[in-house]
Design a binder for these strands. Structure first.
Length: 340
DNA sequence: AACGTTAGCAACCGCTTTATC
DNA sequence: TGATAAAGCGGTTGCTAACGT
């Protein structure tokens, strides 16, 4: 077997990435000495332009390599150790919504890097899903052949799928609103609800935190929504069209906002619309279900309306309701009012 | 003990996106 | 507005350690 030293010796004399083609760069594993140099430099000066870091830090590395080493390994805020069951659940759930967008998934896991999440997915979660008979790409049931050929040694899932149904068209990222995904959504109860973090004063003021509505009322020519405040409860009524026809009514806002708001109990949420062919969905029992660490159950699902697990998950996790472009101005004015 | 296999992970590659001029 | 550089990102590679035979 080729030793690490051999490998590095062989690599050292090669020219590196295009970005560093003017100088010889070292590749392969980082030595403690290199780590120390990089940490010392970054903590003192910040990284600035990564391409200039190696020279300034006294490293014979490519700037890209320095950046990667810092982000994936040396950053002081990185979390070490195994993934928890909760983290695992979050990865599965967000992956089901976003696919292999590791950087986006990692944003929901403080202290974890995209590389780490990706490696964990490929080395563990993927196998667990296959062992459960689920396609790790689509999260749908696999064919029997695939299932039988899967790795039988994969460790057991720490969660259970309770159902396998429903489809809704759903936009999951406000920054990629042109991307519509078919959500094949098995019902996946979280093993626990994510911890409620402290309120983050930096989160965008114009975002409406769905779960903390207190009082709100507005009208506009196209849609109507009102929220009534009770002493201990909030009742929201938000006009939406059928998800299948206007899925963009619901979308996750910038993923970095996820988990930020935490969860505040709500008594009910009513979703309705004005068009006769569309439906009204009464959401009851949410607090109960959420408080015991579950999403809404299958019986709660209304296939006609298309309000399925995805949406209940958003709600349960203290995510955000993203109004449609029509509704947005009203949300914004409400938010401004709230700020005063 | 020797060898082969596998899992986990760090690092790299190359493409895409974003920022700057 | 286009060119270029820098940064970001996902896929892939290959090393090490652990495990099995």
């Amino acid at each position: 077997m080729v030793s690490c030293d051999d490998m590095q010796e062989g690599l050292e004399n090669k020219t590196g990435h295009q970005c560093c083609s003017k100088r010889k760069v070292k590749r392969g594993l980082w030595s403690p000495d290199e780590d120390e140099k990089l940490v010392k430099y970054i903590t003192t000066h910040g990284h600035g332009s990564w391409s200039s870091v190696p020279k300034l830090a006294g490293l014979q590395r490519c700037g890209k390599s320095c950046r990667l080493r810092w982000i994936n390994y040396l950053r002081p805020d990185l979390k070490r150790g195994s993934f928890t069951a909760l983290e695992e659940s979050i990865i599965v759930e967000v992956h089901r919504m976003l696919g292999n967008r590791w950087a986006q998934i990692a944003k929901h896991l403080p202290g974890r890097t995209d590389n780490e999440v990706k490696n964990f997915w490929n080395s563990c979660i993927k196998k667990k899903l296959i062992a459960q008979g689920l396609d790790p790409k689509t999260h749908n049931l696999l064919s029997n052949n695939y299932k039988h050929n899967s790795n039988s040694n994969a460790c057991k899932l720490s969660y259970q799928y309770s159902n396998q149904q429903t489809t809704s068209t759903f936009i999951v990222d406000s920054q990629i609103n042109d991307i519509t995904k078919d959500m094949k959504a098995p019902l996946l109860p979280f093993s626990t609800i994510p911890p409620v973090p402290d309120t983050n004063p930096s989160y965008p003021p114009l975002l409406h935190k769905f779960s903390s509505i207190s009082t709100f009322e507005y009208q506009n020519p196209n849609t109507q929504a009102f929220l009534e405040s009770g002493s201990n409860s909030s009742i929201g009524s938000v006009p939406v069209s059928s998800f299948t026809s206007r899925p963009s009514e619901f979308s996750m806002l910038d993923e970095s906002c996820m988990w930020v708001g935490g969860y505040e109990p709500i008594q009910s949420i009513k979703l309705e619309n004005e068009q006769p062919e569309q439906h009204v969905l009464e959401i009851e029992k949410i607090n109960e279900l959420i408080s015991v660490g579950q999403n809404m159950d299958a019986s709660f699902e209304t296939s006609t309306f298309g309000f399925d697990f995805v949406d209940s998950t958003l709600l349960a996790c203290g995510m955000y309701y993203n109004p449609s472009p029509i509704v947005q101005p009203a949300w914004n004015s409400w938010a401004l009012q709230e700020k005063k």
